[in-house]
């Protein structure tokens, strides 16, 4: 099992190195500081949202409302900062993340306790949360100048502590925040009782119930975590893009998040995968996305290439997993 996980992360690393090398050969400036920053700034939004989704998919669920959660939480944070600047960036961010948790709890409640199938519940809230985003904002966007400079600086400046360290000094706060979130999720999923319960539930729901794992609570919390991830990503969105538009924010983001989690080695059949793989797959998607632009690959080709990469990744993964299973079977 351990071997298999390592293999997945290894293959992702190989893919990243391969794409980066090809990109550098075709366009040496792909390795420039400007471009590395560009990739680093692309990843955090996706990574933070994907961490929550990871827990959900390990429990054999899915949350397609995460883009709308990001939208509603991000919009609310922006509105609070515009109308109540005295809250401060930290205060508003906490409210945004808390709102994300609440929205996730609504999903989780329906799924864990009322036994609504995850795709149905979250398909429903996908529409509801998006509608609410329009309603709370009155259909109007919040503009850059209405948001505090502190929030923008998250995407501009790094921690003052590191100001003297060359190169590292230019890595902005959002990247450090994402790193922290990834570390915490990895630790949480690996070393806490809750994390082990999530894997046990995903691996075999019936056995998990028999072993006395609080199945409903574990499921519920997975969606709350997903909501927290979405809410946090919403706050980061406001920092990165400045303009928060009710139609634009997080629209269609769920597909990117789910793609990142699946490429990261989390099986939709539950029970496997984890934060390191998903983090690497977010980096892979960032590299691919930026490479498509920097290598001037015609705009019209980008979507097809994206789909192809996704397809190849999941087929290769399944083949790897199958051969690994076979070998494990022979060993026993």
């Amino acid at each position: 099992m351990k071997k298999l996980l390592e293999r997945r992360e290894l293959s992702l690393l190989v893919a990243i190195v391969l794409i980066v090398s090809v990109a550098i050969i075709l366009q040496p400036r792909f390795a420039s500081e400007q471009n590395i920053r560009s990739i680093l700034l692309w990843v955090p939004l996706l990574a933070v949202a994907a961490m929550g989704q990871t827990a959900v998919i390990i429990t054999r669920g899915i949350d397609v409302s995460v883009g709308s959660i990001l939208g509603l939480a991000g919009m609310t944070t922006a509105i609070l900062l515009r109308d109540y600047p005295q809250l401060g960036v930290g205060g508003a961010a906490i409210i945004g993340i808390g709102l994300g948790a609440l929205l996730g709890a609504i999903n989780g409640g329906m799924i864990a306790f009322a036994k609504v199938p995850p795709i149905v519940a979250t398909l429903g809230t996908l529409g509801i949360y998006r509608g609410l985003t329009f309603i709370v904002s009155g259909g109007r966007q919040v503009d850059d100048y209405q948001l505090p400079k502190d929030l923008m600086n998250w995407s501009l400046e790094g921690p003052a502590l590191l100001a003297k360290v060359p190169f590292v000094n230019s890595i902005p706060w959002v990247v450090w925040i994402a790193l922290l979130v990834m570390m915490l999720s990895h630790l949480g999923m690996t070393y806490t009782r809750y994390g082990r319960d999530v894997y046990a539930l995903g691996g075999n729901p019936d056995a998990a119930a028999l072993r006395g794992i609080p199945v409903n609570f574990v499921t519920f919390m997975a969606y709350v975590l997903c909501g927290i991830g979405g809410g946090f990503a919403g706050v980061l969105y406001a920092s990165r893009y400045g303009t928060v538009n009710p139609a634009g924010i997080g629209n269609g983001f769920e597909l990117q998040v789910i793609a990142a989690v699946v490429i990261g080695g989390v099986s939709v059949f539950g029970g496997t995968g984890g934060a390191p793989g998903v983090a690497l797959s977010c980096l892979l998607l960032g590299v691919v996305n930026v490479a498509l632009s920097v290598l001037a690959i015609a705009d019209t080709w980008q979507m097809a290439i994206y789909g192809l990469v996704l397809l190849v990744a999941i087929i290769a993964d399944e083949r790897f997993a199958r051969s690994a299973r076979k070998r494990a079977g022979e060993a026993v």
Partner: peptide
């Protein structure tokens, strides 16, 4: 390939529309 249909069609959703865009 014994792949889950959700994942397969998520990928071909982008692929097919991408080819249409090409």
């Amino acid at each position: 390939e014994k792949l889950p249909s959700l994942v397969v069609t998520l990928a071909t959703m982008a692929l097919f529309r991408g080819v249409a865009q090409i």
